[in-house]
Design a protein around this nucleic acid. Structure first.
Length: 424
DNA sequence: CCTCCACCGGAAAGTCCGGTCG
DNA sequence: CGACCGGACTTTCCGGTGGAGG
């Protein structure tokens, strides 16, 4: 078995490579070309050329569903902007915040202020008269705001702040920070700030204070979803850089694009699918990536997504799901809400957990149905009442492994059910 | 045609919890 | 620090219902 030393690596190296550089196939990669986004790129560039002239750029709202290239486009333009500003020795700073991660007024102001402090520290000699770093918690909010103002005004510059997933702020009720930012320029003497809001949700403006909308939404740029042909162009471009020459069949890209187009024109999904197909092909040392690999990649992604969803379920929902599993393993007969509740409640008692109400469990069953983990439909058994008929919609083994971590799975037969259902 | 089972599912009130404000 | 707030999760309450059996 053992070959001469290093043999195993040499062998792998000599195999035909599927990938040239898989970084190009990751959604996080920021390309230089944005197929079918000329209009958006041009409009944004026209707005963001302002700081190069020392002017304040208009505030912009950018809308578009996930995977329409909003974030990548903005990040790319911001990098370019910094670049050119450097060449022209203009004082232009950019800051990017994701409101999904940084989601409170305090944290936004603190993060922003620390970022600006950091760039200053890198550029000036005497750091001693800068305000100190804002801790992640503890200060009064207006003190953080004051620090931010001091740092911003430390020298003359133009700064563009990007707030990605800005709609999260509205749904978390922290949109007042937007009001603060929208009028920050009146508190500043040297620096001018422009704000970019990126939103996945087209309607989020309607839940926003009109004052914020009028000042932050000076310009609006919409990123529509890609259709299948456009996705194909994107995949084509990426795969040329990411995959080795000739390993991709034309129909493969076609299929990936079609899959993703059906699912809301999400370029991220399309890329994930293509890359996963490549990884499967690589794993089995195939010479080419085929449509079969795509199909399997699609299944794998779906499988992983489901497993992730089940794992992140609240414990109570897991128990409900587990009850369905146990019932189904035991008897393939119709499973009704009552059956589930019975098993569920004895599982709860078994683990010493609170037992939720029937009403709640009924709701949880509906939620699991929405997720697609189970199928539930209401049926009437006439004389014998009305109930949801439930069946598992995923591999039972998958449920077991996803649920097992925190729940000790016991055999249904050894559970002390309150009453044994009709026998034979 | 009426009954009545075994639930469904909307509405509203209650509980918890993390975060914010004074 | 305690009062207060809003959101997520639950419970309580309850009117509603398709159809087998009478």
């Amino acid at each position: 078995m053992q070959k001469k030393s290093g043999g195993i690596f040499k062998e792998l190296l000599e195999n035909k490579q599927i990938f040239k550089d898989r970084e190009y196939l990751r959604p996080s990669h920021i390309p230089e070309n944005f197929p079918h986004r000329d209009e958006q790129v041009n409009r944004l560039a026209r707005i963001w050329v302002a700081p190069l002239r020392g002017e304040t750029p208009s505030n912009v709202f950018i809308y578009g569903k996930t995977g329409t290239g909003k974030t990548a486009t903005v990040k790319y333009l911001m990098e370019e902007l910094e670049h050119v500003a450097g060449d022209l020795s203009r004082e232009v700073e950019v800051a990017y915040l994701n409101c999904e991660v940084v989601d409170t007024k305090y944290r936004i102001l603190a993060t922003l202020s620390n970022k600006i402090r950091e760039t200053l520290v890198g550029e000036i000699d005497d750091v001693s008269d800068l305000p100190e770093k804002v801790p992640m918690t503890g200060w009064p909010t207006d003190e953080v705001y004051g620090t931010l103002l001091t740092l911003l005004d430390y020298r003359k510059q133009v700064i563009i702040v990007t707030l990605d997933e800005i709609d999260r702020l509205v749904s978390k009720g922290t949109s007042d920070v937007l009001y603060l930012l929208s009028r920050i320029n009146s508190d500043l003497d040297n620096t001018k700030m422009g704000v970019v809001g990126i939103s996945n949700n087209l309607n989020f403006v309607s839940d926003l204070d009109p004052r914020i909308v009028s000042s932050l939404g000076e310009e609006e740029v919409v990123f529509p979803p890609y259709d299948a042909n456009q996705l194909e162009d994107i995949l084509e471009e990426r795969s040329e850089k990411g995959f080795a020459d000739g390993v991709i069949e034309e129909s493969v890209i076609n299929l990936c694009a079609a899959h993703a187009a059906r699912k809301h024109g999400d370029a991220r999904k399309a890329l994930d699918l293509l890359r996963n197909a490549g990884e499967i092909a690589e794993e089995e040392e195939a010479q080419k990536v085929t449509t079969d690999h795509v199909t399997r990649a699609s299944r794998k992604i779906e499988h992983d997504r489901m497993e992730e969803a089940i794992k992140s379920l609240p414990d109570q929902s897991k128990l409900v799901l587990l009850s369905v599993l146990l019932l189904q393993e035991r008897k393939a007969r119709k499973i009704g809400t009552g059956d589930i509740y019975e098993v569920y409640s004895s599982l709860c008692r078994q683990h010493g957990w609170d037992v939720l109400t029937r009403r709640r469990v009924s709701g949880l069953i509906s939620e699991l149905d929405m997720m697609g983990v189970i199928n539930a439909r209401v049926v009437s058994n006439g004389r014998y009442g009305r109930t949801k008929e439930v069946e598992l919609n995923v591999d039972p083994l998958q449920v077991r492994s996803a649920v097992q971590r925190e729940i000790y799975i016991q055999d249904l037969d050894s559970l002390p059910l309150s009453k044994q259902k009709k026998l034979g």
